[in-house]
């Protein structure tokens, strides 16, 4: 969490009961239900639930943390520990406009410190504090992933990285002190015109009617059928001759249970199964047990003749489409031991 000094945090806590918070969070019911569908366990909702609290209150009061714990099915202290871990949850109220300036290495190179100093002077506060009128808070933050436009500046949740509106990006543009003055002016006017700020959807407008994670509370999503993808054919089929002995090898998926070797002597018009190939896992191949297999099969053909091989793999009952074809001519082993032809 980020925020202010210890006393301010304690002073800020709200005198609300959990029932009152539940009441106040009623408008969020649809989003909460959607979130609860999305994870295998409700616990996954926690970070998002804390966001919703911040959306409603503008910060994360402790009683709100209890609500977040409830909807995420975790203990309150778990939720508290988590809320305290992340810097973006605010421990106490902040100004209406939170100006965050990156103090990372790239932005410092681009004068982030000067820009922050300028802001401090223009607003009459130190970084970390809020102006007396409650309008502006300035924070120094870590890299905002906009280094190309450094010093990176966020106004509330929107990037200032172009001369136009917020979030309008212009390559290589950097905010100057004058740009910030202009924005402060503009935001002040905005506050005058609209005393009550609009709420910004803290989850970025999620879909509300997905079917959810199969099996989760309130979800209707069906699990994947086991065989939605075609069975895997054998890959990288090779046939190599050692004289009349032909070694046919290939790469098989771990799920392959059986593979038969087919041979064609008429250039691939007709195929005959000549045997099955042992698909136990080969040691030395990366991956856990159940990783790919590289089985091989040995055939015998007359020296000088040519044969084509392909492999038809099966995954239980399902037959994969035949592999690519490897052709080989059995070459005589020459005296100097040089090996025969390859596919």
């Amino acid at each position: 969490m980020s925020g202010c000094n210890a006393q301010a945090i304690i002073d800020a806590q709200l005198d609300l009961t959990i029932e009152q918070v539940r009441e106040r969070m009623q408008p969020y019911t649809a989003r909460v239900a959607e979130l609860q569908r999305r994870y295998a366990m409700k616990r996954g909702v926690l970070l998002q639930a804390l966001w919703l609290i911040q959306e409603e209150f503008g910060w994360v009061p402790r009683i709100g943390i209890k609500w977040a714990a409830e909807v995420s099915d975790v203990s309150p202290v778990h939720a508290y520990g988590v809320a305290e871990f992340y810097t973006m949850y605010r421990k106490a109220p902040m100004g209406r406009f939170l100006i965050q300036v990156c103090e990372g290495m790239c932005c410092q190179l681009k004068g982030a410190n000067d820009l922050i100093a300028h802001l401090e002077q223009a607003l009459g506060i130190h970084a970390g504090d809020t102006t007396e009128d409650g309008l502006f808070t300035v924070l120094r933050v870590q890299c905002l992933a906009a280094c190309g436009n450094g010093p990176s500046v966020l106004i509330n949740d929107e990037f200032l990285y172009g001369p136009g509106e917020l979030n309008e990006h212009q390559e290589g543009w950097s905010p100057s002190a004058a740009d910030l003055d202009r924005w402060i002016e503009r935001l002040r006017k905005e506050a005058e015109a609209k005393p009550q700020p609009d709420k910004v959807d803290s989850l970025g407008d999620i879909m509300l009617d997905t079917k959810g994670h199969p099996g989760s509370d309130g979800a209707s999503g069906a699990p994947l059928p086991k065989d939605y993808a075609p069975p895997p054919p054998a890959l990288k089929v090779k046939a190599e001759s050692q004289g009349s002995a032909i070694t046919v090898s290939c790469l098989c998926a771990p799920e392959i249970t059986e593979a038969s070797v087919e041979r064609s002597t008429d250039g691939g018009t007709t195929w005959a199964a000549i045997g099955t190939i042992d698909v136990v896992k080969t040691p030395g191949v990366p991956g856990p047990p159940g990783g790919p297999k590289t089985p091989s099969y040995t055939d015998e053909i007359a020296v000088g003749s040519t044969a084509a091989y392909r492999i038809v793999a099966r995954e239980a009952e399902r037959e994969a489409r035949p592999s690519a074809v490897a052709e080989v001519t059995a070459a005589a082993v020459s005296d100097d031991g040089e090996e025969g032809g390859k596919a």
Binding site: Y39, G44, L47, V82, H213
Partner: peptide, 27 residues
């Protein structure tokens, strides 16, 4: 189904197992 999960400010969540913890509702 694809869902977007919003983090909340912690560089370390880029480390894959920290990211998983964060997705699961942990620190």
């Amino acid at each position: 189904d694809i869902y977007v999960h919003r983090g909340a400010g912690a560089y370390i969540c880029g480390e894959e197992t920290a990211l998983i913890n964060s997705l699961e509702g942990y620190k």
